[in-house]
Every structure is written in structure tokens, then in C-alpha cells.
Design a protein around this nucleic acid. Structure first.
Lengths: 206, 206
DNA sequence: GTGATACGAGACGGTTCCGTATCGGAAAGT
DNA sequence: ACTTTCCGATACGGAACCGTCTCGTATCAC
């Protein structure tokens, strides 16, 4: 929701002139995402460059957002996409599902570029990081934790470990691969291998 | 090693005028690191700002480096600090050592800020990422892998898993905590908990 | 139609940074 | 003493971007 849309729902239902173009809204948000994906970096983003990329006049951007910060906050909000529910049969399969979705969508080109951009600016743009975290990370983390808790209740997961830590044991390796092996694709089957590796442990079982 | 020092070892051993100030060298590199640590972001770094932060004239920077790219490459090279050898008693203790050093130094304030900055620009500055990777990441990864291979040979580590993947099982959780839980400190004892968690596995052993 | 508002384009003055050049003074060799 | 090079400071023209404003045109309610 843009600032303008929020304000349009106010006390003035009578829209009198030419209405704002929804296509322009989309073009601007898409342009920001394309630029971030291209590795442009939050503080190298320019309103001028965004308008250019969107094929839009600068005034059209400033008519909707007061500045770069407000625009970026709204862009973060468009990323919302609550994670699919999980099938709930075996905990192991649910974990594989979660990591497989992370592999295919969460850490695919665009999303991983945005993740990088956000993590690198959390310090200089804490508000922006907060919005990204709340919109993108929180729901997925909650889902993972609920699966783990169910696993603990059913005896499929050790109950003597912190849920936070357990979640990181599963998420971390995928993240590590995506961030440190920057240009390599995340190979098919990685989700299964991580889940089974973490479940069974690195020490041999006799 | 700065470009100037490299070139000074060339065919001209006769240094005739006032020698370059080593203090200025250090001040400039330190300034870059301080700015990165402050969350400034690679493409928001300006030569002008660097000189200002270092308390140095712009010409003093340009006398040493041809531009921002060359300077940043050299800054990456100063990060070299080959990891301490590992005690080599039990594989479990070695793994704890490695992760504990990662917690205390590798992901402490300055170093994690630089890691964030690099991962977010690997796409737009591949040369810079390469240098960072070679200087900072490679040696530590090699050490970790050698420890894991020793563990496999001694039967302390499963031999049916890929060493790459195994390494990520240990590194990933620490990385995940440092990058996604941006402002939280990495708590004491985290290294032990990760290593033991991964070694034993998330599934209960009976 | 008429009035209101949005559109893309871009002019505008102000700021910051670029990379180069020049300054007077400092620190080394000869 | 004299030369050479470095030092910090700062001036320079050029570029990019800021946020505002003004064009001429397009699209809506009335």
C-alpha cells in the first residue's frame, strides 16, 4: 500500500481529476527491485535513477513518496508473501519443504540480492531492516519453529535443545551456501542433504 | 602492501626526496575500515570522505592508489591474518576452537560489517569479492575442512557426507545468527552449543 | 465541454564527489 | 645550502543527484 492509497481512503472519497496510474506504482516498485537485484546497494540508489529505470518522471515518484526512505519501506512491504503451510506429515518432510522453498524462492536471484542489501545496511538503516525482517523473515522463522516444536512433542526432534538454535542449524547451512558461495547455484537436493545431515548428526551412529 | 611500496622495490632504490609517510598509509586504510564498520557501504564510500576521515589530503590518497577500486583491493589484503593452528587433540575441541574464533573475531563488529559489505557487492564488484574471499575466507575454510577430514579418518565424523556440506553445517548456524540477528551479540558458549548440536544431530539418539 | 489532477520530460539552483593542479611548508638525500 | 619529493589544504571544472517547479498533454468527474 502506497502512502497515496492510504491517504485516499481518508475523508475524501471524491477523486476529481485524473486518477493516479496503478501501472506507475508497479513500475516504480519493480524498478527498485530490479536495481537492488542488479547489486546497486541501498545508498547508491537514486531517485533519479529509479525514475529512469521505471520510465517515469521524477515528479511521479515524489507525488507518491516523500523520499527514498519512504519508498524503500513500501517496497519492503510488497515483499510480503506468507509462506505456504506445511503438509504436516513427517517432521523431516516438513523441514525439507521449508528448506526447499528457501532454496527455490527465498534465496533465488532477486530475493537473495535484497537480503544481502538489507543485511549490509541494517546498521545505517535500522528502520528499513526492521521492516524487511518483520515482513520477510519473521513468518518463515515462526513456521520453522512451530514445525520443530511439533517434532519435539512427537519425539522426532531432541527436546533438550533451544528451538532458536535448532532452527539455525537447519537454516544456517543454506544461508551460508547462498551468501559465501556467491555465484554458485543452490543445487537440487541440497535441502534434503542438509535436513538429513542435521537430523542424523555429524558423528557416526552405531 | 601499497602500490607505492611495490613500485619502490623496482629499479629505483634511490629514494631522493621526502619519503612517504607510513603513518598516512595506515591512517587511510584504517579510515576505510572505520567507514565500512560504520555501515557506509562500498559504493557510498568516497575518496573525499576517506581522506577527511583519515585526516589527510586527497592528493595523499591519489599519490598511493589510482582510485577507489585499487584502494579497496589493498584494504582487503591487509585483512590477511592466517588462522591459528588448531590444537589437534579431539576433533570436537578443534571444531569448537574454530567456531569460537569465528565468534570472537571473524564475526565481531568490524569484520562482520566488512563481510556484509562484501557479500552485498559481490555481483557489482566481483574482483573485490574475489580478493576478500581469497584473503579472508579461503584459509579458514581450508583449516575447517582439514579438521573434518582428520575426524573422518579417525572415525569421529561420518565419512558418508561431503566435506563441503559438513563444513557448512558447522559454519552456517554461526553465520545465520550473526547476519540475521543483526544487532544481537553472539553469546558466549554458542560455539560449543552449535558443535555439539551438529555432532549429535537433531534427532534423539537412544 | 469544463475543471481538476496526473502524466513524462526536463529546467533549475544547490550540494557532493570526482580527479587534477597548485600552494607554502616539511623532511629526506647530496 | 640546495634539490627533490611528500605533506595538508584547497581551488578547479565537470558530473550526478537532490527536491521543486513548469511545461504541454492525457484522463478522469461533472
Amino acid at each position: 500500500m502506497t502512502e497515496s492509497e492510504a491517504e485516499a481512503r481518508g475523508a475524501r472519497p471524491a477523486a476529481r481529476g485524473r486518477p493516479r496510474s496503478a501501472a506507475a506504482d508497479r513500475a516504480i516498485v519493480e524498478a527498485v527491485l530490479r536495481l537492488l537485484e542488479r547489486g546497486v546497494g541501498v545508498d547508491a540508489l537514486s531517485m533519479e535513477g529509479i525514475a529512469r529505470e521505471a520510465g517515469v518522471g521524477k515528479a511521479t515518484v515524489y507525488r507518491r513518496w516523500s523520499g527514498k526512505d519512504a519508498l524503500l519501506l513500501d517496497v519492503m512491504r510488497t515483499l510480503e508473501e506468507p509462506p505456504d503451510e506445511v503438509r504436516g506429515e513427517s517432521v523431516r518432510d516438513d523441514l525439507v519443504d521449508i528448506l526447499e522453498r528457501l532454496r527455490q524462492r527465498g534465496l533465488a536471484k532477486r530475493n537473495s540480492a535484497i537480503l544481502r542489501a538489507m543485511t549490509s545496511h541494517f546498521h545505517s538503516h535500522p528502520r528499513l531492516w526492521q521492516e524487511y525482517h518483520d515482513t520477510v523473515i519473521r513468518a518463515r522463522r515462526d513456521l520453522l519453529h512451530s514445525v520443530l516444536r511439533r517434532g519435539m512433542a512427537r519425539g522426532e526432534i531432541r527436546a533438550d535443545l533451544d528451538v532458536e538454535l535448532l532452527g539455525e542449524l537447519f537454516i544456517g547451512p543454506m544461508l551460508s551456501r547462498a551468501l559465501l558461495r556467491a555465484w554458485a547455484e543452490l543445487p537440487e537436493g541440497l535441502a534434503e542433504r542438509i535436513v538429513d545431515g542435521v537430523l542424523e548428526g555429524a558423528r557416526p551412529r552405531e
